[in-house]
Amino acid sequence: MSTWTPSPRQLEREAFRRRRAVRSTALAAVSTLLVVAVAVAVLVSSPGWPRVRQSFFDWDVAVDSLPKVAEGLWLNLRVMAVAAVVIVVVALALAIARTLRGPVFFPLRAAATAYVDTFRGLPLILVLLLVGFGLPGLRLPGVPRDAVVLGGLALVLTYSAYVAEVFRAGIESIHPSQVAAARSLGLSRGQAMRHVVLPQAVRRVVPPLLNDLVALQKDSGLISILGAIDAVRAAQIQTSAYANFTPYVVAGVLFVALTIPLTRFTDALARRSGWMGAMGAVPGGVGGLR
C-alpha cells in the first residue's frame, strides 16, 4: 500500500461529481412525475373515461379473475419452456445444415433453406391454424390432437426458422481467420465448426436469442385460438362470465410482468462484453466517458 491521500484538487472534483449526481437524480424524479401526471390527467379527463374505467379497470373483477388467468399463464410458461428447448435444437441443426458444403449435402442444404424461407414467411397465426386444424384432419394414427401440443408444434415450426437465421448470422460473423487457424492445425471442416466457430457464434448471439425468447413468451398466447386454455383463453372466458373486459388487462399485465425480467436480463447480458470471461474485454465501454 502506498501512502497516497487525495489532493485538494481531486477532493474538489469528487465533491463536484457528488453534487452533480444529486442534482441529476432530483431532476429525473421531477420530470418523471410531471410526465406521469400529464398522462394520467389526459386519460382521466377524457370523455369516455368513466365508461372505460368501469369495463376495463374493475378492481373486483381483476381480483376475482386473477386465479384463472394465472392458471392459464402457467400453461403458457410450460409451452414456452418446452418449445424454447426444441426450437434451439432444431434451429441449430438448420443453421449448420445451411453451412454444409459438398454435393452430398445438397438435399439437406436445400431442404433447410426451403424450410427457413417457408416458415419465416408464413404468419404465425396461419401456421397455427393449418397445423392445429389441418394435421388432425389427416386422421393419421399417432398424430396428436391435443391443442397444446399442436400449438407448441406451430410455435416450434415458425420460431426455429427465425432462430436458425440468428445462429447462421452468428456463424457467419466469426472471422475466416479463425477457421484458417483451426484448419492449419489439421482440424477438419466439421471439427473447426464444432470446436472453434460454434462456441464463439453461440456466445455472440445470446442477446438476440433472448430477444426471440421474449417474443416466444408472448406469442405462446396465440395457442388460445386452437382452444388451449392458456392465459388469453382464460381471460376470454372470464370476460364473458363477468361481461367485463378487465380480465384481458389482467392477462396483459401478467405477460408484461413476465417479460420485463427477461428483457432486463438480456440488456444486462448484451452490455456485459466479457461474457463467460472469454470474449473481448472492453472495460467500461463508451458509457463511462464524459
Partner: peptide, 19 residues
Amino acid sequence: DALRARMGMVFQAFNLFPH
C-alpha cells in the same frame, strides 16, 4: 487435413481461439 497437420502455421494476427 492430414497434410496440414504436418505443417505449422503462425499468422500475423495470432488467430488464437478467444473462447
